[in-house]
Simulated assay, not measured.
Amino acid sequence: MQDSIGKPVGDKPDDSTAVTRAGQSVFMSVYKTKVADECWLITITWCKNMLLHGLSVAIDGPQAETSCKVELKPWYFWRKQGSKSFLLDGKAIDVFWDLKSAKFHGETEPSSEYYVAVVCEDEVILLLGDLKKDAYRKTGCRPSLFDPILVSRKEHVFGKKKFLTRIKFHEKGRFHEISIEAKNISTDHDGVDSEMEIRIDGHLMIHVNHLQWKFRGNESIDFKKVKLEVYWDVHDWLFSPGLRHALFIINSTSPASFPARSLPSSVTSTPLSSQSGSGGSSEGFDSSGLYEFCLFLYAWKVE
């Protein structure tokens, strides 16, 4: 195993402790693509703390796993543009990036003026960013016939009472804002009760009273003809000292294929590694553009 920047990495360590200690935000997106009639998963991880922005590209093929990692530190400007090559299942993989002018606007992921491209066998199998013409010119390769599908997203976000994120319910749809807010309210008998609200685009979708009794649960909701299953575990918010996190899982599927579900056994009070595998389903999408998508949101409370 090699762990230097820009080199292939086989075994990825558990990064959850580092996330907690450094207080860094992590956004990890998993895309399903196809190479030579085989399904591959590509994981793009952006992380941010007070000192650096980091980018990691991990590719999971049908037989092996490797990754190319690039860290972007403010004083290492030359690393904001470049490429790396490695082999996966005997196939040559090239990762190209240009983040010289990337606009982050205070966020973990860039919003414009950048590209990240993954190339295999003269095809661009994944292209992120708005500088697509620059990416195709730099790689000299053609687009893949298979459009990559975003199948899961994992985020670590920090806040005091309110947490925000954005997700898509359709491959070509717009982003929707999800807000989660937990608060204490006074009761008639001078006591204190806890409640939680989950909103989508400002619309109240889930309201949990007596949160100290209902700190784990799940609920099915419908939003714009999409069936959503929402799981939550806020035990540590209520009962653990220090820096505390809650876990939310939001799973969207087309109504016709949405199965009955129970709370997954993986929903515990221990955060998953921010660098681990997808954690979400890589199947379940159809030609209509509706597809199964999982969001794993780790909300860290900072007092």
Rank of each mutant, 00 (worst) to 15 (best):
S179F: 05
L127C: 01
P8T: 00
E177C: 06
K103C: 09
A299E: 10
I59H: 02
D130E: 09
G202K: 03
G159T: 08
D222I: 09
W46C: 02
S220H: 09
D201W: 02
P62Q: 06
C120S: 08
S220R: 14
S152N: 02
D98P: 06
D147I: 10
G140L: 01
I249G: 08
T270D: 15
T45Q: 07
H207T: 14
S152I: 05
F158R: 05
F285Q: 08
R199H: 11
K100L: 14
F248V: 06
V208H: 00
V157E: 14
P241W: 05
K133G: 07
V267T: 07
W300D: 05
L164T: 05
V26K: 03
R142C: 15
D130G: 02
W75P: 04
L126E: 02
T253H: 13
A260E: 14
P62A: 07
I149Y: 06
H210D: 15
V95P: 05
L126M: 00
T187V: 07
L290V: 15
I93H: 02
L211P: 14
S112C: 10
L164I: 03
P143E: 08
I44H: 02
S112K: 12
T33H: 01
C39Q: 11
K227H: 07
H207K: 11
S278K: 09
